[in-house]
Each structure stands twice: as C-alpha cells, then as structure tokens.
Nucleic acid binder design. Structure first.
Length: 486
DNA sequence: CGTGCCGGGGT
DNA sequence: ACCCCGGCACG
C-alpha cells in the first residue's frame, strides 16, 4: 500500500502528461498492474498502427504504470491525454463523416460553413431551387458581395478568412444564381440549425476535398486566427443545438412560413431553443422532413421546404405560389434523425456525397426504419461486422485497447473499433414523428436488435466477483465488456 | 437462473 | 466524464 502511494506521488510529476488511461481506475491500482499492464503494453504496438500521436501518451502511461489513481492525473494527465486523443480522433471522424455524409448531416456542425463557404458551386444550384425568388437576407449580403467581387476561381480558393460585410450591397441581376447560392450558404453558416440539407449532387470533387481539409483544419486548429468569424460562431454553446425550431414550423404549415429563407436564417437559433424532449439522447438528433410520396425520398430540413417540394413536384402546383391548402401536410412527415448514426446511411439516400469516393462506411448503419429509405438493410448485419472489421483493422485491436475505451473518457479511444459501434441502435432510430398520426406505417419491429451473446469469457467470469476490481471498467459498469470482446 | 449489457440515473 | 444499477435478453 505504501508503495502504491509512493509511486503515485512520483508519477504525478513525471507521468502527468502521458498517464492518460487508467488513471482513475481507482480501485484496481495494485492488482491491475499485473494483468492489464501486460495488455496495455501490448496495446502500444497495436496503436502505433495508425495512431501514432497516441503513442507518447500511452507510453507515458504504461511507463508510469499509472498506479497513480484518480487524484492528480485526473486533472492533468487525463485531460491532457484525453484531449489529445480526442482531437486526433475527432479529426479522423470528421474526415470519415465527410466522406460519407450528406449535406444534411453536415449542417449539424457549424464547421461546414467553413468549407461550404463558397466551395460547392454545384450545391448552389440545387439549393436554389428551393428558394426561388427569395430575397437574400440582408445578413447574407457579404456573401453576395463576395460573389460579385471575386472571380469564381478566386472565390473558391478564398477561405472565409476575412470578410468585409457591406451592408447595403444589392445583388445585381445577373448574379442571381450566385446570389441565391450565397444566400443559402450564408444562412447555413449563420445558423447551425439551418436547413437545406441533402442535395448538392454536383459538387465537384476538388471543392469537396478542400472543404474537408478546411474542416479538419478548423477543428484542430482554432489556434490559427485564420477564421475571423470562426471563433465567434463556433463558440456558440454547442455545435448543433437540436432542431426543435421545426416544431414551430410545422405546427402551422398553412401559414407556410412564407419564406424558408427568413425562417432559416433565424439569426438566433437559440431563441427557439426550448426543449420539449427532456434531457439526453437528443444530442445529435435532428428533425427532418421526409416526403412520403411514393418513391420519393426527398428529405428536407424545413417544413416549408418539404411543403414546397410536395406542392410543386407532386401536387403540381405552381412553384411560385406560396399558397398552400395544407394538403402537403399529408405527404410529408417529420422524422428525427440521429446525425451520428445516419451519417453513412444518408449518404446513400441522397445523390450527394460528391466528394470523396471514400471507403464505404465501415459500420453498418444502425437499424433505422426510415420507411422507404434506401438504407442498407442491415438485419443480421451483426455477423458482418467482424468480418469487415478484420479487413480494416485487426480485431485484436479491439481487444487490446478496449480496456481503455471507457477510461479514455468518453472520448473513446476507439480506433475504429467496429465492435463497439455495433449497436447504438435504439438511440439512433430515425424516429418517425409525432404530429402526423396518419403517416408512417413504420412497423418498428427492430426493437430488440440485441447483440447475440458472445462466446468470450468476460471479466466477470475470468476474475470472478471477488476480483471485481480487476474487471475492465466496462464490466464494472455493466457495460459491454471491453477487455474480452467477441 | 446466471450472465452480459442496454438504457438511464446520479454526481 | 465517471460511475452505478434496474432490468431485460440470452443461453
């Protein structure tokens, strides 16, 4: 015991930076060093695999043996390491998402604005359509200005770094399209909530890439003062405050909120932010509006948008009339979409994902039951996961690092560990929603997509109840065992 | 009935 | 973020 503390003390200073995992596993201290430490060192090699940045962290950690428990490192080492990991991971993830996701998802994070910003000309056109004849919002003028002032090529290359905002500039006629596009995009950037999801089918490759880069750049380095508005805009409490403003919209479709434009550009999304859904599981939920018309899978993010879509496309009403008898109402429904999990799925849905011909989503999308959707039907896909995994990453990887997964903070060190993603199922349902009782046949039989029980012995079995403190954290918490995965 | 772990609650 | 646990599905 004494030794324990000694070690503990010393490691404070030395290992602080690196002692990232395990630090807080209070109880396991002494004993833990036996078994797990082996594992951990083992994991190092595995890690180097693709996550070099981690290495130091890990090394430091294992070196110090991390006997130090909670006390000092919690604040120091942990956060340090954790953050590091986090960042790295984040970028990685983002990249991934980028590849697969559609505009819909991207909107969730203000960051896209960065990239989107003037880069997806193809997208412009498309977006236009929904916004015919809209007046550009005054707040968007800077974009307009940009469009006018700069030659196209330049515009693309120009990041949003520093944007003069001429307030009174008017769009001149011939720049219409650009203006529209700009408007849309700006609205995107102004409000994280804002819509204009999917589509942008024609975005050219380079643009996409640039975007991607910008994205990750902005994420990893808010340090560079490059993005003048970046800071302000991003610092907004949280990234994607969940929708909810849709409620407002949709409750009175008839009023047709006149302009999606104006509605979209709600400058203060936060106002609308009242949260009917009590805590939790809302984090990455986004309300979308899905066209229920046969064979039409249009998903838009604004009620008015979808209404317009239905009105014009399906009901054959003139596009310019804003008149609505409310009939559209019957042809769309509100769905809640989990951004995270639908990322991949949606990429299938929409014609988008222009950019990367990136690798297919590694993780099968969770069981969503967006009706009609083209989502990969993954019933029983559990079985595939492992095989997929084995392709992209040695399953051992899961094993090894798993123990820390829970510890590395919920930052999850998950280096692409398929095993874990296995099924956030329930939370990621695209919930067919409320206010429209008549619609959505959704059977929803997928409830119990519970993972078949694994063969592997779990901590409980291996160590027994008495040695509970030797269990992996997950086991201790009654979570899926991270040490002995299947 | 023991076990694994999901979902959710508490701090 | 970390931890705990009720409760349910699985074997």
């Amino acid at each position: 015991m004494e030794s324990k503390y000694i070690v503990e003390k010393s490691s404070v200073g030395t290992g602080a930076g690196g002692a990232d995992f395990n630090c807080r596993t209070g109880r396991s201290v002494l004993r833990d060093t036996r078994v797990p430490s082996v594992e951990k060192t083992g994991s190092m090699s595995a890690y180097t695999n693709g996550a070099v940045p981690y290495k130091n962290v890990m090394d430091g950690g294992s070196a110090a043996e991390i006997k130090s428990e909670r006390t000092p490192l919690k604040g120091n080492g942990l956060s340090l390491g954790g953050r590091l990991l986090h960042d790295v991971e984040k970028n990685g993830l983002l990249d991934q998402k980028d590849t697969g996701s559609t505009g819909i998802l991207k909107r969730a994070s203000p960051t896209h604005c960065l990239g989107v910003n003037g880069q997806l000309p193809g997208g412009f056109m498309h977006l236009d359509i929904r916004n015919p004849g809209k007046q550009p919002d005054p707040t968007n003028n800077f974009r307009v200005a940009q469009g006018q002032i700069l030659p196209q090529t330049e515009r693309y290359s120009l990041s949003s770094s520093h944007i003069p905002v001429p307030r009174n500039r008017k769009p001149s006629g011939h720049a219409d399209k650009e203006v529209m596009a700009a408007t849309v995009l700006t609205s995107l950037s102004t409000s994280p909530l804002v819509h204009y999801p999917s589509s942008a089918p024609t975005a050219p490759e380079p643009a996409g890439r640039a975007w991607k880069e910008v994205l990750s750049a902005s994420y990893s380095s808010s340090t560079s003062g490059n993005w003048s508005w970046d800071a302000s805009d991003h610092s907004v409490p949280s990234t994607p405050s969940p929708p909810l403003l849709n409620d407002t919209n949709k409750s009175f479709p008839l009023s047709s909120q006149g302009d999606d434009g104006s509605e979209d550009v709600t400058e203060s999304p936060h106002f609308m932010f009242e949260d009917p859904i009590p805590r939790k599981r809302k984090n990455s939920m986004k309300v979308m509006f899905k066209c229920l018309w046969k064979n039409c899978e249009k998903v838009l993010s604004t009620s008015s948008g979808i209404q317009r879509h239905i009105r014009t496309i399906h009901l054959g009403r003139s596009s310019d009339s804003d008149y609505s008898d409310g009939e559209e109402d019957f042809y769309y429904s509100e769905i809640e979409v989990n951004m995270d999990s639908l990322t991949e799925g949606l990429s299938n849905l929409t014609p988008t994902s222009p950019t990367t011909a990136g690798p297919p989503p590694i993780f099968p999308p969770p069981l969503t039951d967006v009706p009609h959707s083209k989502h990969i039907n993954m019933n029983g896909s559990q079985c595939h996961a492992p095989s997929l995994l084995s392709q992209s990453a040695p399953s051992t990887l899961c094993h090894i690092r798993t123990d820390h997964a829970y510890q590395g903070a919920t930052t999850h060190v998950r280096t692409v560990s398929i095993g874990e993603k296995r099924q956030p199922a329930p939370s990621s349902h695209a919930i067919v929603n409320k206010n429209h009782p008549l619609i959505m046949p959704s059977p929803k039989s997928t409830q119990g997509a519970r993972k078949p029980r694994g063969e592997a012995k779990k901590c409980r079995k291996v160590y027994g109840m008495e040695k509970r403190d030797m269990w992996c954290t997950a086991c201790r918490w009654k979570k899926a065992c991270q040490r002995f995965t299947d």
